[in-house]
C-alpha cells in the first residue's frame, strides 16, 4: 500500500511539471492551431541557463544561498521568454497565412536548432546539478517519503496553475486571450489586438515552461540537451489528454499523465512505460480526440 502512495507522490510531482509545460503547448495551439514543437526544447534551455547561474554563482560544492536559486529561476524565465518571443517573431509570424504544414516544419526546425544549439554551447554529455541546491529535507509519512524538492514542485506548480487560471478567466486581458482562441477575426473586429495576445502567449507559455524545465533539472539532478523531446512529448500528450487548446484541461492532463506514468512504470513495466503512454495517447485520439475537457475540434471538416 505504501508503494502505491509513494508512486502517487512521485506521479504528482512529475505531473505538476508536465502540466506547467503542457500549458505552453495548449495556449499556443488554442490561438494559432500550431503544435509548437520547439516548446519542450525551450524548457530544457531554461534548465541549462538555471544550472549555469547556480554553478557559477553558487560554487560547485556546498549549498548555494537561497537568492542564487531565486536568481537562477529569474534568469531562466527572462531568457526563455525572450527566446519565445523571438521564435514567434522569426519562425511563426511570417507563416501565419501559409499552409499549416509550413509552420509545423518551421517549428520542427526551431526545435532542432535549439536542441543542437544547447549541445554546441554546453555539452553533448549529461550535466549534473550539484547536490544541495535545495534543502535536503524529507518527511516520512507512514512509509511514504516526500522530499522538500517534491513538495516545492507540487506546491509551486499548483499555485502557478491557479494564478494562470484566475488570470485567464478573471481579467480583461485574459478574456482577450480566450476570445482570440475562439475566433481570431471576430476578436480583431471587437478591437482586440490579436498580435499582442499572441506575443503574450509566447511569454506566458515559455515562462511556465522555464520553471518546469528547471524543476526537471532540480528533481532528477541532471540535464541533457536532447531531453526536450521526451518531456516535451509527454507534456504534449498531457495537453491532448486534457483537450488541446483547453487551459484547465492541460493542468488536469498533466497531473493525470504524471500519475498514469508513475503507476504504469511501477506496476506494469518500466521498460515499456513510454510505449504504454503512447498507446494511451493513440487510444485517446481514436476514442475521444477532443480530450477530457475539450469541446472544440482542432480542424473543421
Amino acid at each position: 500500500m505504501s508503494t502505491l502512495f509513494q508512486q502517487l507522490v512521485n506521479g504528482l510531482t512529475v505531473g505538476g511539471i508536465y502540466a506547467l509545460i503542457a500549458l505552453g503547448y495548449t495556449m499556443v495551439y488554442g490561438i494559432l492551431k500550431l503544435i509548437n514543437f520547439a516548446h519542450g526544447d525551450l524548457c530544457v534551455l531554461g534548465a541549462f541557463i538555471g544550472l549555469t547561474v547556480i554553478t557559477s554563482l553558487g560554487g560547485a560544492s556546498g549549498s548555494p544561498e537561497i537568492w542564487v536559486v531565486g536568481l537562477a529561476f529569474v534568469a531562466a524565465i527572462i531568457a526563455i521568454c525572450c527566446a519565445g518571443v523571438v521564435l514567434e517573431f522569426a519562425a511563426y509570424r511570417p507563416l501565419r497565412n501559409a499552409h499549416r504544414l509550413s509552420a509545423v516544419v518551421s517549428a520542427l526546425g526551431a526545435s532542432m536548432m535549439i536542441e543542437n544549439g544547447i549541445m554546441l554551447i554546453w555539452s553533448p554529455q549529461t550535466l549534473v546539478f550539484p547536490q544541495g541546491v535545495l534543502p535536503q529535507i524529507s518527511w516520512h509519512v507512514g512509509g511514504v517519503v516526500i522530499t522538500f524538492t517534491q513538495l516545492m514542485i507540487i506546491v509551486i506548480s499548483l499555485i502557478l496553475m491557479a494564478s494562470l487560471y484566475l488570470y485567464v478567466n478573471h481579467t480583461r486581458f485574459g478574456t482577450a486571450i480566450r476570445a482570440s482562441a475562439i475566433d481570431q477575426d471576430a476578436a480583431r473586429l471587437m478591437g482586440i489586438n490579436v498580435n499582442r495576445v499572441i506575443v503574450s502567449v509566447f511569454i506566458l507559455g515559455p515562462a511556465l515552461g522555464a520553471i518546469g524545465g528547471l524543476f526537471i533539472g532540480l528533481y532528477y539532478r541532471q540535464a541533457v540537451f536532447d531531453m526536450g523531446w521526451t518531456y516535451g512529448l509527454n507534456a504534449f500528450i498531457a495537453a491532448i489528454i486534457g483537450g488541446i487548446g483547453n487551459i484547465p484541461g492541460a493542468m488536469l492532463g498533466g497531473l493525470l499523465l504524471g500519475l498514469f506514468n508513475a503507476l504504469a512504470g511501477g506496476y506494469i513495466s518500466s521498460t515499456w512505460q513510454q510505449a504504454i503512454t503512447f498507446g494511451l495517447l493513440i487510444a485517446i485520439l481514436l476514442v475521444r480526440p477532443t480530450g477530457i475537457l475539450g469541446e472544440r475540434v482542432a480542424e473543421k471538416v
Partner: peptide
C-alpha cells in the same frame, strides 16, 4: 557532423519562411 542538425533547424525555418511551398 556536430553542426548538422543545428544547421538543418535553421535551414528548415529559413526555407519555410522564404518559400512556404
Amino acid at each position: 557532423a556536430q553542426y548538422r542538425y543545428f544547421a538543418f533547424g535553421i535551414g528548415m525555418i529559413v526555407v519555410m519562411v522564404v518559400r512556404p511551398q
